[in-house]
């Protein structure tokens, strides 16, 4: 099948913030966690999503997976709209879109053996398999992620964090989904283990042709694994660009600041980080204009007036009126 495997158009997610209710009759506040994010993912490719904590990057993929209700917007899977209110449609989504979570230990059921954990998705997504076949498929998958099959009767607490993440990946991939949503899959791991897991993901992607949405706050990791990167700030999309181009030539002022702040493991690379003033604004009370305006070093009065539209020029897109024009 050609065409994008996953497409999302103008997604919005809102949460009701009850604690901001001053009186029982006052209107509760709203946290606008995701504000109009669109994305396209081709089969076998990787889309990285970066941004600081609270920018809505995890919420975005949780909404795509159907774990958080969407407020507005549409998700298309293989060109076919997903109806999150329809059980059958959700079931189809889950068979094709799986998720890997940040905390490798708490995302595994401590009372199930890892064989049961990895074979459970098969019960739902490949119901024709009998018990023996399920077991065989699960064992194969465990071996592929580097967990020896003779450990299959053990429980999650007997494994290290890196191994648990491998088991989480095996569980997500065992039913051969088309899309794997990874929510900070390596942030809880040490550097030496982190590299193992990233390499494993890349290898499995090559073998199985699964497309990845890779959410992380570590730009080095995202740059390494992604084809295209989406930069988010306060739930909005600031820029989308091929990973190499984003690093070489960021166009949005926020992307520039974010990239310059990344510590580079090289003592001679004193890049003089462009230190941003201030902190993230409250998501309860988003500005009318550009979401980044308050911290932007090059903001104009016009930036406060209206939210800049995303100007899409094919492989790159940027939402900033001060972004340098495309060189012709």
């Amino acid at each position: 099948m050609s065409g994008p495997v996953l497409q999302a158009n103008d997604l919005h997610v809102r949460f009701v913030a009850r604690q901001t209710k001053r009186w029982p009759w006052s209107k509760p506040g709203q946290v606008k966690a995701v504000n109009g994010v669109s994305l396209t993912l081709d089969p076998g490719r990787t889309l990285g999503v970066v941004g600081e904590s609270g920018c809505g990057k995890s919420t975005l993929i949780r909404a795509i997976a159907g774990l958080t209700p969407l407020d507005r917007g549409q998700v298309l899977l293989d060109g076919e709209p997903v109806d999150y209110a329809n059980r059958a449609s959700l079931q189809r989504l889950r068979a094709r879109v799986q998720m890997v979570f940040q905390d490798p230990v708490s995302s595994l059921n401590p009372r199930m053996t890892i064989r049961d954990i990895v074979s459970e998705p098969l019960v739902y997504f490949r119901p024709k398999l009998d018990g023996t076949a399920r077991r065989r498929v699960a064992m194969d998958m465990l071996e592929r992620v580097g967990i020896s099959a003779n450990l299959a009767n053990r429980f999650p607490h007997e494994f290290s964090g890196g191994q648990c993440q491998r088991i989480g990946i095996a569980r997500a991939l065992v039913a051969q989904p088309r899309v794997l949503l990874c929510d900070e899959p390596v942030s809880a791991l040490d550097v030496s283990i982190q590299a193992q897991v990233i390499n494993l993901l890349k290898e499995l992607q090559r073998e199985m042709g699964v497309a990845l949405v890779f959410v992380a706050h570590d730009l080095g990791v995202v740059r390494h694994i992604s084809d295209t990167v989406l930069v988010m700030y306060m739930g909005g999309m600031m820029e989308r660009a091929p990973a190499g181009d984003l690093v070489a030539d960021p166009r949005h002022p926020y992307s520039k600041a974010l990239l310059s702040a990344v510590p580079v493991p090289d003592p001679d690379a004193r890049l003089s980080p462009q230190v941003l003033k201030g902190d993230l604004p409250s998501p309860l009370d988003l500005p009318q204009g550009c979401l980044f305006e308050a911290r932007c070093p090059v903001a104009l009065p016009a930036c406060r007036a209206a939210r800049p539209p995303l100007i899409d020029s094919g492989d790159r897109a940027v939402a900033c009126i001060r972004a340098e024009p495309e060189p012709v």
Binding site: V191, S192, Q194, A195, I198, D218, L219, G220, V221, R223, H224, A243, G244, V247, L259, V262, V264, P265, D266, A269
Partner: peptide
């Protein structure tokens, strides 16, 4: 070597 360097992927 295990750290992904943003300038040298």
């Amino acid at each position: 070597r295990a750290v992904p360097n943003i300038n040298d992927p």
